[in-house]
Structure formats: C-alpha cells, structure tokens
Design a binder for these strands. Sequence first.
DNA 1: TCTCGAATAT
DNA 2: AATATTCGAG
Length: 347
Amino acid sequence: MIKKISNMDYNQERCGQYIEALEEERRKILVFQRELPLCIDLVTQAIERCKKEITETATDNVYGQSECSEQTTGQCTPVLEQFLTIKDSSTFNEEEVEEEFEDEQGNHDPENDPEDKNMKSDWLKSVQLWNQPDPLLPKEEQSQQMMETVVKRDESMREDANAMANSGERRRRETERKQRRCWSSQLHRRFLNALQHLGGPHVATPKQIRELMKVDGLTNDEVKSHLQKYRLHTRRPSQTVPNNGNSQKQHFVVVGGLWVPQSDYSAGKTTGRATTSGTTTTTTTTTTDGIYGAMAAPPPPQWPSHFNFTPSIIVEEGSGSHSEEVVVRCSSPAMSSSTRNYYVTKN
DNA sequence: TCTCGAATAT
DNA sequence: AATATTCGAG
C-alpha cells in the first residue's frame, strides 16, 4: 500500500516534471508562434492534458491511482520519453549513415558549457530536438512521427490531430511556407562531402549535390539555398572586418575549392584531395591565391560553430570499394571559363 | 520544362 | 543569420 502510494507520488512527480518541461518547451517555441502554430497548440494541449490527469490522480483513490500510474506512466511519461529520445534513437535507422556521428556530440561544446549559459545551450538543445531527427527522414515521416506521439497519448486527440494535420496541409499547399530544413552538422557534412566530390562549391550543382548526398527528402531547392549560403560565406569575407586579435588563427588551404585547415591538409590527414587535371586551374592552391581569384587569403568565414566549415571533410570511407575515379563534368559560369572536367579521386 | 544562380522575402 | 521563395536566363 505504502509502496503504491509512494509509487504514485513518484508518478505524480514525474508528471509534474513533465509538465514543467512541456511548459518550458512551450515558452521556447512561442517565439516561433507564427511558424509553429500547431506545435504550440499541441504542446499546450499536452500540458492541459497532463495537468488534468495529475489533478484527477490526486483526487482519486487508490484505484484511480493505480489507473493513473498506468495512465501517467503509460501515457503521460512515455510521451516525454518519446520526445526526448527522438533525438538520438530515431535519427539513424538508416542504412548508410556510416560514419557521421562520433564527433557530433564530442566536438560540440568544446569551449564551455556547464550550467551558466543554460539559456543558450538549452535553447539550442531544444532546437536540435526538433530538427535533428529530420536529416535522414522524409518530412512526412517526421511530422507523422510527431503526430503519432501525440495520438498515442490519447485517442480523443486523434480527431484533433488529424484535423490539424489536414488543415495544416491545406494551408501549406495554399500559402504557408515549407517547413524549414535545418542543416544539422551531419547533413552539412554530407553536403561537404558531396561538394568535395564534385570539385568544390563553385562547380558543384545543387542537383548533383543532392544526388550525392542521398538524403531522403532533401530537395534541390534546399540544397540550392544552402549552397548559396555556403558560397557566400566562402567568398572573401569583407576585408573591412579585421579579425583583430584572431590573427593567430589557423591557416587555411583551399582544397578542391573547399576551405580546409592547413593542419588538416598538410598533416597528410588530407581526407580526399581533388586532383584537378583541369587545363586552367590547379585546384590545390594555397591561400595566397585561391581558385576564386579575388579570394585571397581569408580564413574561412565563421560558420555556425557546429558547421565547422573548416570541413572535417570526411570522405566516405565506409565501403571499401571507394577508390574509383569519378569524373565530374563541370560547367560553371562562376568559374568564368568553359566546361572542364574534374577528376576527383576518392580514397 | 527543368535547372541554375542571384535577388529577395520571411 | 539561416532558410525559403521568386525571378530571369539558358
């Protein structure tokens, strides 16, 4: 009996914590009210639901309690768990996720972290929570996933969810924007890989990149957009911004049109070089005169830390068969010269 | 019609 | 700043 009660208390407490978590979550996504109205709605409903359950639980007698302990643990808490676990577990059911991963968590917070900057890291974390799962999943699956978590929680919500999903879809078809694709570091790494294989950002084409990335659900437009950004950042960052202080920064080398930390490059750790047999350009140049002509010696622009644009370019090492020569036809106006063939060797 | 890159919008 | 959307060109 006592056991039961304490058990129940425990469940209540857990539920309480869950509610808190939800409320915090809600606070966070409130910022995106416009973009995620449904999310907010869902979270709100979840909160209410839990609150309701918790009060019912409190007032109920032992039977109610035991029921609740099943409800709370069976309905309430699991949701939390699902939300929390989505991040890591569900992400990679995929076949060829090969490499990736490892450094992901490891590298992430090299600078500092503990608890002080809670706000920020917390926020980021929650962003990741939502964004991370998608890289390799088609969007539909994702939203479906989300719906499922909710639906599972309570049958009565099903209509709601469906209705919302429908109206959401409809709305989207009409006016609403696409769900933003978040370029997780993994996704970005794939992007870089593809880029490298294709001979650099200025010769790679969105479609080619997308095909090379082999990421489910990734669209040309998304890649195009990302590529545009990448190119912009890759260009010589305005000289007017003197990186005072940071002059002791790493030296970078352009490899296959990608900025690579010199250390990485010269250390022989060179992941994969783009051996250009191009008639005009030598792809492997030093910073002093990059292949972008005007782009002299700027260290790569600062990318969102997690992007590590100083690519940890990982050439797909997974399948041993890699070593073939890929001939990539490149025609890029950006290169200001005619079509060239790049021979890229993978290792 | 498709793809691209640049410009622009959110 | 990051991503999406639009637009004109090829």
